[in-house]
Design a protein around this nucleic acid. Structure first.
Length: 151
DNA sequence: GCCAACGTTGGC
DNA sequence: GCCAACGTTGGC
């Protein structure tokens, strides 16, 4: 069992939509190889996911989801009308992958980025590393537990 | 809206 | 295979 943190921009997708729909395909906009490798190779059913929102007023972790499927080829890479169409990808050898993500719960409050940065024991989280731009990052179990305790 | 940091692209 | 130019991310 591993833990992850997924970024989302609330304008594009927010946690209330995930709560309403319960389960959603995730990764159809991920076009970064490092993130792709994590989706394809490392994420397992049942893994915990922090739902983080960026590029907005209330930056931070809003709640928890979990991995609900094995990785599968992201359908948008084959869709000519999609913004995420990739002509270099083929169905025999798909380049990009998605997984299903299931809503678990929303925190009673947002654990803000400022709090996370201020917390000594959370030093070293990939999230707070300078220049980090990955939409998915692994989370250490002790960091996971610590953030839960902050709620 | 600014800008630093990074990934990707493409000419050579 | 190098590297400059460009596009994107994302905190502030």
């Amino acid at each position: 069992m591993a833990y992850w943190l997924m970024k989302s921009e609330p304008d594009v997708y927010n946690i209330d939509t995930l709560r309403k729909n319960s389960c959603e395909m995730w990764g159809k906009s991920v076009r970064n190889y490092q993130a792709r490798n994590m989706i394809r190779d490392d994420m397992k059913i049942g893994d915990g996911i922090f739902f983080y929102q960026s590029n907005c007023k209330d930056i931070g972790i809003l709640g928890i989801a979990k991995v609900a499927s094995k990785p599968y080829p992201d359908p948008t890479q084959f869709d000519k009308n999609s913004h995420y169409f990739d002509e270099k990808s083929s169905k025999d050898d798909p380049r990009w992958f998605s997984i299903d993500v299931e809503f678990v719960r929303k925190f009673s409050r947002t654990i803000t980025l400022a709090e996370i940065k201020a917390e000594k024991t959370l030093e070293g989280m990939i999230l707070t590393r300078r220049g980090n731009r990955l939409s998915i990052t692994p989370v250490d179990e002790n960091h996971w537990q610590k953030i839960l305790s902050l709620e």
